[in-house]
Design a protein around this nucleic acid. Structure first.
Length: 954
DNA sequence: GGGGGAAGGACCA
DNA sequence: TTCCTGGTCCTTCCCCC
């Protein structure tokens, strides 16, 4: 395999990135060569090693490119950069702030110390905390053998055969950490914890107060079994307080003698601390030790970067203060190896080393060169370091950016296991998210294969998600995509993780408008019940969406994700009415469906016959009764055909659910972004059949709606009872085959043509009046269709080109703009499935014919008024608002919307044409990785189904 | 060209 | 035989407007 790396600059047969990192306290003066030899012998040939080799090669290539770039730098460029650096240096110098006293406190070998404290037998033994796979930390005895954190246990054992490895016990460490933090809080209530054993404090304010404190407040009693104290040393003007004795009975046996303690009136030993920074920090460490029997080291400096370096200076069990004057800072930083700086790791160190830069003073000397070779962010960072500058303000309430969970395991190749684990991770993560009341829009799946290659696949949703079902809906599909990518080979994993990021801002957390759930609720919904989802307020509480304000686009289609590597969102020009993706959008969908239904009902001259495909009230085919947990029987159609809404859930859950055989999953969500009822509700009203469903389980309720919609509209049932019981889990290919009868062209390739949904047209009010004959045209219907991101949208027929297909007996096509042609030989109840136009399409392309060429003016399908516009955007706006009003009106809701505002002024028009939600580009092949190469730009632009669409318009 | 998403990677404890 | 976990930030590529 990878052999080139052995002859790289890292040395013959030697991988520098795997070599011992002795940049840690207690590891000075080790026999590096010997240790490295053992590490290499233990690792060589392993997949991990091969992967490290690969990474090393990549770094070497980076360095080669950098050196090449350096060779082309001209004197002129250099002097220009130098001028830039000098200007920036003087700017930074002017802003230098030496007024704060920042402390970095780091517990010494924290986990190991806790374990040793609790098991004194370990005191004199080399020990580490972790497992044979990985060590979290080691004590100082073990460090003498080269055993350190982040080293696999089996290698550590080879370095130190007597090493005792103690398993981690995070509950215990958390408890100790809490005690330590209590002490921190006395010095800086807003301290910044970096981990369980480390924190930054700004003690400036404390010192201010401390100056006025009487001695009694600075006096602390020693526990009888501890005698620790400290002494202050003077090192060439740099005052240094060295903690010396007893405080670390378990770790540091060679502590120097202490200064004498005083005795209090009761005869107990006490320690009196001074008022300066060193004394305050010494006192803090003293108190930590008294409280936990563990020692801490600290660094005191004018900024965080320096404090961090200082805390390492006298580790373990010591402290170091860097005086707050510029010269002291400059002197301190001069000979500091760059690797000592937090943020400079082995790669950066190596790159800088290639330029001859090993210390911070070199950094300053070569800054012009660095400015030319590195990014602005990087060289600015370097400049700060070279000047000894760092943050003087401890960001106390920094918002969390992401949350994740991941698991490493033995090789896993079975799909069932993978999907099952994926769900477990989603469950764990959902719990964590719930604890912090977080919801995020981006879900990332992290995979590490058995070759240690890490891949991340992310999907950004238009709405924030947090529940297991929502997370799983996305993660599972990302996983499925990766499985498909390596198919027919199995995806052999050793790690899987799920991350959520792009957390909702405060604004996003505000209640959403027009929640259908409020509408769905039983009227007597307990008003005192606490809403779990803030958005789920009754519709009355929310005003109608202002004209021009778009709703978030819907969530991506699973089908699209699985099928297309190049899927793109396409928010239709009816902006704001897309449904099916988000909870909000689903709600809108249902609301509109309801409104449309009522309107159509009222319009109907003849009551629908049994089985009429317009007939919401009529049901064809067998029906079944679902017994709710409460024992109430709910009439539900026995039909597994799904509504457009549930189509998403079907496609979202099909594959993996089948694979994992998790019966709960299929009904768990109807989209990525679920809608949950408020707690305290004991029944929900079905928006289709208007019956109360005695359940608060959304899964049950969703299923009811699915079945209801299916039965209402499809009027026929080709599925079996078994299928019903199993839920709408039909694999996409099966559906496609079934619907198209295998007739679809195999073009280039239908591969891209995404079968998006077996939708039920009249469930949203599409008039498919087949009673007049085999071929009927409807000019006023609303067509449900789905965009390439699985947004189910309500759109007037022909306003957006769609590709239609039917099954098994029908044929639906776009006959003309604004016209739907239906043909059915045997059954008037045509099932229509939609093929995504796919691809990112500007709303204007392909434009339907202009009004002049299209014939009559546009007629609103809701209010039936002819609109004096042929601008589709304006018309869409009108329809949208019309529907809104219709829904609100039907719900007995809000003040009416002035329809005169529907025809938007030019400004609002523009607003509607704001950039569309950009689609996530799924699975696109990057520079690296295993994904297939990306499609051509043209293919991407057009989208996979364009060939198909094109045929309709040709 | 700028903005922003996706993916990968560096780095830290 | 065996090389973690969880988090942040940065860079690069790419697409869209």
């Amino acid at each position: 395999m990878a052999t080139g790396g052995t002859s790289s600059s890292s040395g013959e047969g030697f991988l520098s990135r795997m070599a011992l990192n002795d940049n840690k306290a207690g590891m000075e003066g080790l026999n590096r060569d010997k240790i490295n030899k053992i590490i290499m012998e233990s690792s060589k040939g392993s997949r991990f090693y091969e992967n490290e080799l690969k990474k090393e090669q990549q770094v070497n290539q980076r360095i080669e490119r950098m050196m090449l770039q350096k060779a082309h730098i001209t004197e002129q460029q250099l002097s220009k950069a130098q001028a830039q650096v000098e200007k920036m240096t003087s700017d930074l110098e002017r802003g230098r702030d030496l007024s704060r006293v920042i402390v970095h406190v780091d517990m010494d070998a924290f986990y190991a110390a806790v374990e040793t404290r609790d098991c004194p037998d370990l005191m004199d033994k080399p020990m580490a905390v972790g497992s044979m796979s990985m060590l979290s930390t080691s004590n100082y005895h073990a460090r003498k053998f080269g055993v350190r954190a982040a080293m696999p246990g089996f290698i550590a054992k080879k370095l130190c055969p007597n090493l005792v490895i103690v398993p981690t016990n995070f509950d215990k460490y958390r408890a100790v950490s809490a005690e330590v933090r209590e002490v921190f809080a006395d010095y800086d209530p807003h301290f910044l914890p970096m981990s369980l054993d480390e924190a930054y404090l700004d003690i400036s304010d404390h010192l201010e107060q401390r100056r006025g404190w009487p001695e009694a407040l600075r006096t602390h009693r020693l526990h009888t079994n501890n005698t620790g104290t400290a002494r202050v040393e003077d090192h060439g003007g740099l005052q240094e307080t060295v903690e010396v004795e007893g405080l670390s009975p378990v770790l540091f046996e060679n502590s120097p003698s202490s200064s004498p303690c005083l005795q209090d009136a009761a005869g107990g030993e006490v320690e009196v601390f001074g008022t300066c920074a060193e004394e305050a920090v010494r006192e803090m460490r003293f108190r930590i030790e008294q409280k936990t029997s563990l020692t801490a080291s600290a660094g005191i400096a004018p900024n965080m970067m320096l404090a961090k370096v200082c805390s390492d200076k006298n580790k373990p069990n010591g402290q170091y203060r860097l005086p707050s004057n510029r010269q002291a800072v400059i002197d301190f930083i001069q000979d500091l190896p760059v690797r000592k700086i937090s943020g400079i790791g082995k790669v950066t160190e190596k790159m800088l080393g290639a330029l001859g830069i090993t210390s911070c003073s070199h950094l300053g000397q070569e800054m012009a060169l660095l400015a030319l070779l590195f990014s602005e962010t990087s060289w600015h960072h370097f400049l700060h370091i070279s000047m000894g500058l760092g943050s003087t303000h401890i960001e106390r309430d920094g918002e969390r950016k992401s949350m994740s969970t991941e698991r490493t395991f033995g090789e896993m190749g079975a799909l069932e296991e993978q999907f099952s684990l994926c769900k477990e991770l989603c469950q764990d993560l959902a719990q964590d998210l719930q604890k912090e009341a977080l919801k995020g829009k981006t879900v990332t799946l992290k995979l590490k294969n058995v070759n240690f290659e890490v891949k991340t696949r992310a999907w950004t949703l238009p709405c924030a998600v947090a529940t297991t079902e929502e997370l799983f809906a996305v993660a599972k599909d990302l996983l499925k995509t990766e499985i498909d990518n390596v198919s027919p080979q199995p995806l052999r994993l050793r790690l899987m993780g799920v991350r959520v990021s792009s957390f909702a801002s405060a604004d996003d957390k505000k209640p959403l408008q027009k929640s259908i759930v409020g509408f769905l609720h039983k009227k007597q919904t307990d008003s005192s019940s606490t809403s779990q989802i803030s958005s789920h307020k009754p519709v009355k509480e929310h005003p109608p969406r202002p004209p021009g304000q778009t709703q978030p686009s819907a969530c991506p289609s699973m089908v699209q994700q699985r099928r297309g590597q190049e899927g793109h969102a396409w928010v239709p020009s009816l902006g704001g009415v897309e449904v099916g993706g988000t909870g909000e959008n689903q709600q809108s969908f249902l609301q509109r469906a309801h409104a449309q239904r009522l309107r159509l009902q009222a319009e109907r001259e003849d009551p629908p016959e049994k089985g009429d495909c317009n007939g919401f009230e009529t049901r064809r085919g067998p029906t079944s009764s679902t017994t709710t947990p409460e024992g109430t029987q709910t009439h539900t159609p026995k039909n597994t055909n799904t509504s457009a809404e549930t189509d998403i859930s079907m496609s979202a859950l099909t594959a993996s659910d089948k694979m994992t055989h998790e019966p709960s999953a299929h009904a768990s969500t109807s989209s990525y972004c679920s809608t949950e009822p408020e707690s305290g509700t004991d029944s929900l009203t079905c928006p289709v059949c208007f019956r109360e469903v005695n359940t608060t389980e959304l899964t049950v309720f969703n299923r009811h709606i699915d079945q209801c919609l299916s039965g209402v509209t499809m009027g026929q049932n080709n599925h079996t009872d078994t299928e019903l019981e199993r839920g709408p889990c039909v694999c996409e290919e099966e559906v496609e085959k079934e619907i198209t009868g295998g007739k679809r062209e195999e073009g280039p390739k239908e591969k891209g043509s995404k079968l998006l949904s077996r939708c039920v047209l009249d469930s949203v009010g599409l008039r498919l009046d087949s009673s007049a004959g085999d071929h009927t045209e409807s000019t006023t219907g609303l067509l449900l269709y789905e965009t390439s991101t699985a947004n189910i949208s309500l759109s007037t027929v022909g306003l957006n080109p769609v590709c239609l297909n039917t099954c098994p007996n029908g044929d639906v096509s776009i006959h003309r703009a604004n016209t739907l042609k239906v043909s059915s030989q045997s059954d008037p109840h045509v099932r229509v499935c939609l093929l995504s136009p796919g691809g990112p399409r500007p709303m204007t392309t392909p434009k339907p014919e202009s009004r002049d060429h299209r014939g009559p003016a546009l007629t609103c399908p809701v209010c039936q008024e002819t609109q004096d516009t042929n601008d589709l955007t304006l018309f869409n706006r009108h329809v949208d608002l019309c529907l809104n009003q219709e829904v609100l009106h039907e719900l007995g809701g809000l003040a009416s919307v002035d329809r005169t505002t529907h025809t938007a002024p030019p400004a609002a028009h523009k607003e509607r044409e704001q950039p569309l939600q950009r689609a996530p580009q799924k699975g696109k092949s990057k520079r690296r990785g295993l994904s297939p190469p990306p499609p051509s730009k043209k293919a991407k632009a057009l989208g996979p189904a364009w060939n198909t669409i094109d045929k309709f318009f040709r």
